[in-house]
Design a protein around this nucleic acid. Structure first.
Lengths: 233, 233
DNA sequence: CGTCCATTTGAGGTGGATCAACCCTAGTGG
DNA sequence: CCACTAGGGTTGATCCACCTCAAATGGACG
C-alpha cells in the first residue's frame, strides 16, 4: 500500500480459446465472458503482499485468479482495515460497473492472474445481452456475499464468525477434507472484524474441543462440520 | 415476519408514460427501466411494520418507494437482526439477479411503492442492452453501499457509526437542512450493529456538543457537518 | 543452527451490551 | 380540553466479550 514493490514478473499473453469453446462452460466464470467473446487474456504474476490495484484507482482491468490468493479491502485513515473478500483460484475480481475500484486488492501469497480490459467487456456487453447478463450476475454474486458478511460483522459473536469463516473456506478450498489457508491470522481478523488474538483463541478452543485438527497453523482439517454449524448462528 | 397483517390497501394500476419520455431521465431510476421499456407499473401500499416480502421468498417483483420508507434485513435464528439498508422515496429495492430475495423487506411507516414484474424486466434486458446495463448498474450501486457498510460494521466505533449514519441520512432525506427520520432507535441500532441505547447515548452526546439539534426525537438538524465528518473515521 | 516472523497464550483494561428505571409525547377517550 | 395510556426514548449502573499489551513458543528458511 505504502511502498510499491516492483519485481520481475512472469508475463504471458495468449489468445483465449474462443473457437475451441464457443459455448460457456459453467465451471469457468472467465471462460463465460472472455472466452465467449473471444477476448485476449493476459497472464500476470504478483508477489506476496504486492498491490494489484488501489482503492479509487481507475478500473482498467478485470481479473481472475489462476493460482494464489488475493485480498480486497478498505482502509480507514488511521490504518484500520476491513477485508471485504478473499479471492481464490477461479474467482473473478476487480469487476466494476463504474469507473473506479471500490476496494484495493493485494496478493496474499505469490499469485498469478488472468486479466482482460474492462473496456473490452463493456464493448462486448453493449453488443451481446448474454455478456451483459453475465456481468450483472457476477456483481449480484458479490452483493450476496457482502449481504451475508454484513450480518456476520454486525451481529455474530467472535466464535460464530470464526465458525462461519471455517465453513466458507472449507467449501471453497478444501482438498481431501484438508484446507490450506493462504492468509495469516491478521488477515482473518480483518475479514471477520476481530483482532488476530481473538481469532487465534477461537481456533485454539475449537481444536481443544476436537472440532478441528491442525497440521501447522494454516493446515486445518474439520473433524466435525455439524458441531461447527451449530456454533454458527 | 411471523404473522402477516392483511389490511386494505390503495391499489392503482397505470400505464407508464413511455411515449411521453422515450429518453431516460437521470432523476428517476424506475423511469430509466420501466418507463423506457414501457412496462406497466402498479402502485401498492403497505402499513407500518407490514412485510413486503420475506427472506428467500421468490423474487417476483421489483419495487420503487413512492412515499414512506422500507427496511431490508436478515435475521439470525435467535432473532438478532441486521438491517442492510433503508429505502427512501425514489429508491429501487427488491431487485435480484437470482430467483429469490436475499433479505426480507418491511415498511417502516405507511408506505406506497410502485412495482413491476421481475420477469418483464428480465425480458426487456434480454432484448435491450441498455436495460441490461441499467440492471447491472443498480446492483453495483447496492454493492458499493454494502462494501462501505462492511467497513462501518467491522471497524468503526459507535460514535463513528452514528456520525456516518447521520451524514448518510442528511444527504438522502434532508429538506431545508432538517431531516425527519422515519425509523426508530432500534432500527438505527440494527442498521449500525449497535444497541438502541448506544445509539441514543451517541445522539445525546452529539446534542450536548452542539453538533446537532432535536425537534422531537426524530427531527434532527445538523448544526456542524464538518465536526461530524471529523468524528467519522 | 540461528534468525525472523507468525502464532499462541496470559493478564488486565474497556467500549459497548445488558438490565433497569424513568421520562417524554403522541394518541385516545372521557 | 384535559387526564390517561402506551410505546419510544433517555439515562444510570453494572457486566462481560473482546481488545490491548506483553511475553513465550513455534516453524520456515537461509
Amino acid at each position: 500500500m505504502l511502498t510499491q514493490t516492483f519485481n520481475t514478473r512472469a508475463i504471458k499473453t495468449q489468445i483465449n480459446g474462443s473457437k475451441i469453446a464457443p459455448v460457456h462452460p459453467v465451471s469457468d466464470q472467465f471462460g463465460e465472458i472472455a472466452g465467449y467473446v473471444g477476448l485476449i487474456a493476459t497472464e500476470f504474476s504478483y508477489r506476496k503482499d504486492e498491490e494489484i490495484y488501489g482503492e479509487d484507482e481507475p478500473a482498467e482491468y478485470v481479473y481472475q485468479v489462476v493460482s494464489g490468493a488475493v485480498r480486497s479491502y478498505k482502509l480507514l485513515s488511521d490504518g484500520r482495515r476491513q477485508i471485504g473478500s478473499f479471492h481464490l483460484p477461479g474467482d473473478v475480481f476487480g469487476l466494476e460497473s463504474g469507473p473506479a475500484h471500490r476496494l484495493a486488492a493485494e496478493a496474499i501469497i505469490d499469485t498469478t492472474v488472468r486479466l482482460v480490459k474492462r473496456s473490452s467487456l463493456e464493448k462486448a456487453a453493449g453488443t451481446d445481452v448474454l455478456v451483459a447478463r453475465k456481468l450483472w450476475t457476477m456483481t449480484a454474486g458479490e452483493l450476496r456475499h457482502a449481504e451475508d458478511h454484513m450480518l456476520l460483522l454486525g451481529r455474530k459473536t467472535a466464535m460464530e464468525r470464526v465458525a462461519t469463516f471455517l465453513l466458507e473456506m472449507d467449501r471453497r478450498l478444501a482438498v481431501a477434507s484438508m484446507m490450506a489457508l493462504p492468509m495469516c491470522r491478521r488477515d482473518i481478523g480483518d475479514y471477520l472484524g476481530l483482532t488476530l488474538e481473538t481469532v487465534s483463541r477461537a481456533l485454539s478452543q475449537l481444536h481443544a474441543q476436537g472440532i478441528l485438527g491442525f497440521s501447522g497453523a494454516r493446515q486445518i482439517v474439520l473433524r466435525n462440520r455439524q458441531r461447527l454449524h451449530n456454533l454458527d448462528a
